[in-house]
Design a protein around this nucleic acid. Structure first.
Lengths: 154, 154
DNA sequence: TATTGTTATACTCTATAACTATA
DNA sequence: TATAGTTATAGAGTATAACAATA
């Protein structure tokens, strides 16, 4: 238990942050920073940000989804989704078409190119995930996901 | 098990995001958004942001810490820590003094007022934590923290 | 009137380069 | 020459109000 000599002042070694580490929120933030960093590294070659990848993934699984449903699913504010889709559409990764049955709504679909990029990006995302949770067993990863999901699922 | 009728198209109900939910990173992000929101609600009355609270907490536990150690501990870039400390110092919550033994360094300490606010803020932070992980047992919370720590600890 | 989506905008967070003063 | 801290600034992420088109 007593493995290292007690530092005689706080700044001499590593700062004590036991108070923060007692909070789930702080641990969550710190882990999120790591995984975000791994993700960005690996997604750079695809020129995709996290929000952009998540849009492609959900549109791929839900072809013809409208922007309201997409915004709700991804917890993105509609104005921000609009500009996000502008970029992806300009890159030829997806299309927006007015819904003939309700001309207010836009039907969003991936192009072939978008679907292909999404496939490659998923592999990079899985790779980033693995790099970040490399020290967790498969069972621990499953458990972690289940615990996290309890926090954000209604 | 079969409680609701299967939707005949993706946009009719809730979007399928099983692909994203398979990633630890996405679950982490979604959980982080929830806890961040609870935290901000409860910290508003103390007029403290997350980074500000974390600074107060670490300085309280490490009186006389210098900014380099503080920046490293909290994973904040030094320029951003400088402006953060400017605000907290202007509010009379902490002091910066040049280290007489190395006049480049600043020794950071909480004022009495800062220590008092930090104490009240910690209660609010614990409360926010509880609100966010209310559906997890005590054992699950401990387990979640341990799993998260494995991700960001070297 | 309510809803979908857009534009414009502002605010926070984060990152980098260039500087100062000390060592 | 290297380090601690600062200033200035730019970029990304996020939030809100006001608007247009449609229902």
């Amino acid at each position: 238990m007593a493995s290292k000599p007690a530092p005689d002042n706080a700044a001499s070694d590593q700062a004590d942050q036991s108070e923060l580490l007692g909070l789930v929120g702080y641990n969550l933030r710190r882990a999120y920073l790591v995984i975000q960093s791994r993700f960005d590294e690996r997604m750079e070659k695809h020129d995709l940000r996290q929000a952009e990848f998540s849009v492609l993934s959900v549109v791929k699984s839900n072809p013809g989804i409208n922007q309201k449903a997409l915004a709700e699913a991804l917890v993105v504010a509609p104005p921000n989704l609009a500009t996000l889709l502008d970029r992806l559409e300009a890159r030829g990764l997806l299309t927006r078409q007015r819904n003939p049955e309700d001309k207010r709504a836009q039907l969003v679909e991936l192009t072939t190119q978008g679907a292909q990029l999404c496939g490659r990006a998923l592999k990079a995302a899985v790779n980033a995930d693995d790099a970040a949770v490399g020290r967790l067993s498969v069972a621990e990863r499953r458990q972690l996901k289940a615990l996290l999901r309890k926090i954000f699922t209604d």
